[in-house]
Design a protein around this nucleic acid. Structure first.
Length: 261
DNA sequence: ATGACACGCCGAGCGTGA
């Protein structure tokens, strides 16, 4: 991407349940690339056509009723990899790895982890370690690389309401923080924190207890960039507008803007 | 402390989410 571009990442919590929201948001913001998570549908029923009509090439990696990722781009990708490279297939449909106009873009839906001490939690940590290994083997931090999506980890105390209340809980454990640190040690930086050091800047709020109205959420949707792109990042916006629409996703869209090289 | 919302499974609660 040897020109300015914008990138959207959004956990939509069901693309069919959120189709009108996503289409109107894309039509208004017109990002060059859009990474969607939790599409929750098989590829054969993914609503490709309306996105194509907005000018996007559509790549999807989905499964029935659960998880699923989609990457939409105005420029057609030169490479598309579903899941991890090599080894067993990413049957959970959590990774869509594309190369778009020289940009290596990982659209990620990191496993939830459920609770500390569960198999799902072990899987989450192993999944992050495997991603780190793949980056080390196949990518260079000197190249333009972006990892974005729903990481299901709040990086630090500014990204949660009450750190003490989360002791022993998933999404904010020392183990998850270590796994994220290890992944980012590849050579990636948090684009949001380049521009904003305030606490309480969340991207997800539970539907229950009126948590959105009380701003009781977490910042778990992130855009991480390698040095050459981090330097070009001009803004990262958490757009709360769609959360005010009828029957919204529990996550809001995050839009990162990058200037020219 | 517990439960609280929502989605998609298919036609009712249930698994999952975070």
């Amino acid at each position: 991407m040897n020109r300015p571009f914008t990138l959207l990442t959004w956990n939509v919590n069901g693309i069919r349940a959120r189709l009108d929201d996503v289409l109107s948001f894309l039509a208004e913001k017109s990002p060059d690339v859009a990474c969607l998570q939790e599409t929750k549908c098989e590829d054969k029923v993914f609503p490709r056509v309306p996105f194509a009509e907005l000018g996007y090439t559509v790549h999807i990696h989905g499964a029935k009723g659960y998880a699923g990722v989609a990457t939409l781009s105005k420029v057609k990708p030169t490479e598309v990899v579903l899941g991890f490279r090599g080894g067993d297939a990413d049957s959970a449909c959590r990774i869509l790895n594309t190369e778009i106009d020289g940009l290596r873009l990982y659209n990620l839906y990191v496993p939830n982890g459920t609770a500390l001490g569960t198999e799902a939690f072990t899987y989450k940590l192993a999944w992050l370690a495997r991603l780190k290994a793949e980056l080390a083997e196949h990518c260079s931090p000197a190249a333009p690389v972006i990892l974005c999506g729903d990481f299901n980890i709040a990086p630090d105390e500014r990204d949660v309401v009450d750190p003490r209340a989360l002791v022993g809980s998933t999404h904010f454990s020392p183990e998850e923080h270590a796994a994220l640190r290890e992944l980012l040690a590849f050579g990636l930086q948090d684009c949001f924190r380049k521009h904003d050091d305030r606490p309480g800047q969340y991207t997800w709020w539970d539907y229950r207890r009126a948590d959105f109205d009380r701003n009781r959420g977490m910042r778990i949707d992130h855009v991480y960039a390698s040095a050459p792109l981090y330097a070009r990042c001009e803004s990262v916006v958490h757009d709360k507008t769609p959360r005010g629409w009828d029957a919204p996703s529990d996550h809001i869209p995050v839009i990162a803007s990058f200037g020219g090289p």
